[in-house]
């Protein structure tokens, strides 16, 4: 059997403050396995650790402990410039954070693949006017159908953002309070009280409406 596409094996990231006495300021933990090609929606409040999670998944930010395996390969053991051959992070350029490269690339392994297996879309700009959304969503499906894992992070601020998530994502990750929870479907996501409080009353109402089969207009 093929290795799962993405495994976060007891991954912990601890950010600390102070040089002598290190006091943890933030800890993110994740333990999950995404075995099959899928489209995974990621939601969670700002500061919950989404960016850190994505950086660990795509190999730019090394976990304090634990391993990130992409199709069985520890991505943090791969040559820096080849990590995006396993998992690629599409982000806004201003969001790019750089990290120290402790081990010279020469001592690291080459990537076993040439085309990325995990595609991580970090809050892509969706705009109802230009019509690109439809192409983008079809593209996510195409990647999935070709055997890739698509991770789509969104910050829903309009009902149609929720439409997109409900339409496209096969499963979800909810990131909050330093933890990552895998959720089976949109209904279960919306039922989670932490998610409801993150969404706020208006978005929660819209999400409930989607669960009850209502269709939104684009206006």
């Amino acid at each position: 059997m093929a290795a799962p596409l993405l495994v976060l094996d007891d991954v912990r990231k601890v950010y600390t403050r102070g040089r002598v006495i290190r006091r943890p300021t933030f800890t993110l933990q994740a333990n999950l396995s995404l075995d099959e090609p899928d489209i995974v929606g990621v939601v969670g409040p700002n500061g919950a650790g989404k960016t850190t999670l994505f950086e660990m998944m795509t190999g730019s930010n090394a976990p304090t402990s634990g391993r990130v395996l992409v199709a069985g390969t520890d991505i943090h053991g791969v040559k820096y410039r080849e990590r995006d051959r396993l998992a690629i992070h599409y982000h806004q350029s201003y969001q790019v954070r750089r990290f120290r490269k402790r081990i010279p690339s020469a001592f690291l392994a080459p990537s076993p693949t040439r085309t990325p297996l995990v595609h991580l879309f970090d809050e892509p700009q969706f705009n109802l006017q230009d019509g690109y959304i439809g192409f983008m969503l079809d593209f996510f499906r195409k990647l999935r159908d070709e055997g890739r894992l698509v991770v789509l992070c969104m910050h829903p601020t309009a009902a149609w953002h929720l439409d997109i998530l409900a339409e496209i994502a096969g499963r979800f990750l909810f990131v909050a309070g330093g933890g990552v929870t895998a959720v089976a479907n949109f209904g279960a996501l919306v039922a989670d009280p932490r998610c409801r409080s993150y969404l706020g009353p208006e978005m929660t109402k819209a999400a409930d409406a989607i669960c009850h089969g209502a269709v939104h207009s684009s206006t």
Partner: peptide, 22 residues
Amino acid sequence: QVVARGTPHELQQNEWVRRSNL
């Protein structure tokens, strides 16, 4: 990457495209 390709008519079949200015 090329995320979509087709004749103008084909591209306009997409439901989200219909909802937009395109």
